[in-house]
């Protein structure tokens, strides 16, 4: 494998920024990232559906699948203690609609997403990238400030919508690009084929 290409991008992200990116590229983001997990996706889509205005315009921003650990400091401000990604596949059923209706340009999570999301990304020019699963302290270190939080009382800390100001947030590895290529889908096929061969070899080794 050759060296990966590295990009440093600032929000709001343009179609041009996003269209350059390809599967395997590494991105560092500076600007605004907005968290949403299962409940927040539902909430945001409900608000849009009802014709009301969202408290924040998500166009060009980065959506982050994350349920952070936060602490309230004595002066009332928030400190993000750990903020790694959560499993993105849980949001697969609603993500295509979310991309279409909000205009987010990048989605960050872990583990990859499915075909419907990849198609929506191709159509609406967006990418999906993963942040190292489990690296919650590193992520928190790159979050400079909590700009705002929405639906905190209703959804609770991990499920609320947090608006983070981030600096050089990464490394993010692009796994779905605007051409519709989906790294994990291909990788999982490859792993499955390898698994068949490995099992065959393993059967020749005596355990009993």
């Amino acid at each position: 494998m050759s060296e990966a290409r590295v990009f440093h991008l600032k929000t709001p992200l343009s179609d041009e920024d996003i269209s350059k990116l390809r599967v395997g590229d590494i991105v560092y983001v500076t600007g605004i990232m907005v968290t949403a997990r299962d409940e927040a996706h539902k909430k945001i889509l409900e608000v849009i559906e009802s014709g009301e205005k969202l408290p924040i315009d998500l166009k060009g921003l980065v959506l982050y699948h994350c349920g952070p650990v936060v602490r309230k400091k004595e002066d009332g401000s928030w400190e993000v203690v750990a903020a790694g990604p959560t499993t993105s596949m849980r949001m697969e059923s609603v993500e295509a609609e979310f991309i279409e209706k909000t205009g987010v340009k990048m989605i960050v999570g872990k583990g990859g997403m499915g075909q419907r999301t990849a198609e929506a990304m191709k159509k609406h020019k967006a990418v999906y990238a993963v942040f190292t699963g489990g690296a919650g302290a590193l992520a928190a270190d790159r979050i400079k400030r909590v700009v705002d939080v929405y639906w905190l009382d209703e959804l609770g800390i991990p499920e609320a919508v947090w608006v983070f100001e981030v600096e050089e947030f990464g490394p993010l590895v692009v796994t779905i690009d605007t051409t519709g290529k989906n790294y994990y889908e291909e990788k999982m096929k490859e792993v499955k084929m390898k698994a068949e061969k490995i099992k065959e070899e393993l059967m020749k080794i005596e355990f009993e």
Partner: peptide, 28 residues
């Protein structure tokens, strides 16, 4: 190279968690 960036991020994460006395992962 990509696997290497992941391992580096993991090592950095462990070191930040130690230095700042923070949870290693947000899923504690």
């Amino acid at each position: 190279p990509v696997a290497k960036t992941q391992l580096k991020a993991i090592l950095e994460d462990m070191e930040i968690a130690c230095k700042k006395k923070r949870p290693i992962c947000q899923d504690t």
